[in-house]
């Protein structure tokens, strides 16, 4: 217990060992009607045993970021044109495809939103879970099978020996999502990228999967990047949060600071939009206007057209993350205007 508390404390202070550091990442899609900058100068850092939440508007580049880290951007039309992705000190962008495959297979795993599309419908689930173990760790059939059953047991599948032989269509959505988690856990990755892992699930199953992930994390010290647009999920599970808008990180802070003392107008707008279960509001406060066209961004703050604190110079002056508190960064030119 004591070490647990200590680890939690060190994580909250933001001083654990850095597993992943992304800096200056630019990802572009060159399409017929223009170039989309889906990631523009992204910076983020994930520590051992900690979870970084990534939230933001739909289309703000959250999924592209995860894929760029794993170098899974379809090319063409997508290109990573600048930046570094340091994973345990190595820049993933400079690795050969072969080395990269190894990283994907053993150290960084990604789970996607729809479990049905990440499982092959005509393969027994057990075999799909252990395929990675056999390919990347050279485990024999019997050893891999034992491991696979053990993994299924760990994610809470009852009688895993029998169920490992079943096919995806025989499982419910919640069970499949757990199978996907089990697959990601095979080989104990150091980093898990979870893209909208629970969005398609209903609350009680979401609750089960989140409990499972946190429990695995406590046990193995795995780092996580959790992409979600459910702010409450992020509040409950993440140690730090990065808020994205139009391909850029607008604000990044320890969870508590972000929720209690946001320093970017977009983050404030997001918070105000959320309906509450506790009480019934008469009116929600959405952010006015529409997200910008990513092919035609102005040189300054991408949020300027919708921001209630904007000055004329906001649309012209390039913005960058600046420190506004302990481990708290905002890309707003006028963070002091918030709450004033």
């Amino acid at each position: 217990m004591g070490t647990d508390a200590a680890r939690t404390a060190s994580r909250r202070a933001g001083s654990g060992e850095v597993v992943l550091e992304v800096s200056g990442l630019v990802t572009e899609f060159r399409l017929a009607h223009g170039t989309i900058r889906a990631n523009a100068d992204v910076f983020l850092r994930v520590r051992k045993g900690a979870t970084l939440g990534v939230v933001g508007e739909s289309g703000s580049g959250k999924s592209v970021l995860c894929r760029a880290i794993l170098r899974l951007i379809p090319s063409p039309p997508g290109f990573v044109t600048a930046g570094r992705v340091l994973f345990e000190g190595r820049d993933l962008l400079t690795l050969s495809e072969r080395q990269m495959r190894r990283v994907r297979g053993t150290q960084i795993k990604m789970v996607f939103q729809n479990p049905m599309t990440s499982l092959n419908p005509v393969w027994p689930i057990g075999d799909q879970i252990t395929e990675g173990l056999r390919v990347h760790y050279g485990l024999g059939r019997a050893a891999a099978r034992r491991q696979g059953i053990e993994l299924l047991r760990q994610v809470g599948i009852p009688s895993p020996e029998a169920r490992a032989r079943e096919y995806p269509f025989q499982w419910s959505g919640g069970m499949l999502q757990r199978a996907v988690v089990a697959m990601a856990m095979a080989g104990e990755p150091k980093l898990l990228l979870a893209d909208e892992l629970t969005t398609a699930l209903d609350v009680t199953i979401q609750d089960q999967i989140l409990a499972l992930l946190l429990e695995i994390q406590e046990r193995t010290g795995m780092a996580m990047v959790l992409v979600s647009h459910d702010m409450a999920v992020v509040a409950e599970t993440c140690d730090e949060v990065a808020v994205m808008y139009a391909g850029q990180i607008m604000e990044t802070a320890p969870t508590k600071a972000l929720f209690n003392d946001p320093k970017h107008p977009y983050t404030v707008g997001l918070m105000n939009s959320i309906p509450s279960v506790e009480r019934r509001d008469d009116r929600l406060l959405p952010i006015p206007g529409q997200p910008p066209d990513l092919t035609r961004l102005n040189p300054g703050c991408p949020f300027a057209a919708r921001c209630s604190h904007a000055s004329p110079d906001c649309a012209e002056t390039p913005v960058a993350l600046r420190e506004v508190g302990p481990a708290h960064h905002s890309a707003c030119l006028y963070p002091e205007r918030i709450g004033a």
Binding site: T204, L214, A232, T237, C238, T255, F259, V277
Partner: peptide
Amino acid sequence: AVPRLIPERRHREA
């Protein structure tokens, strides 16, 4: 089971 908007890492079972 509804997640709360309270920035506190949860320590409960499902």
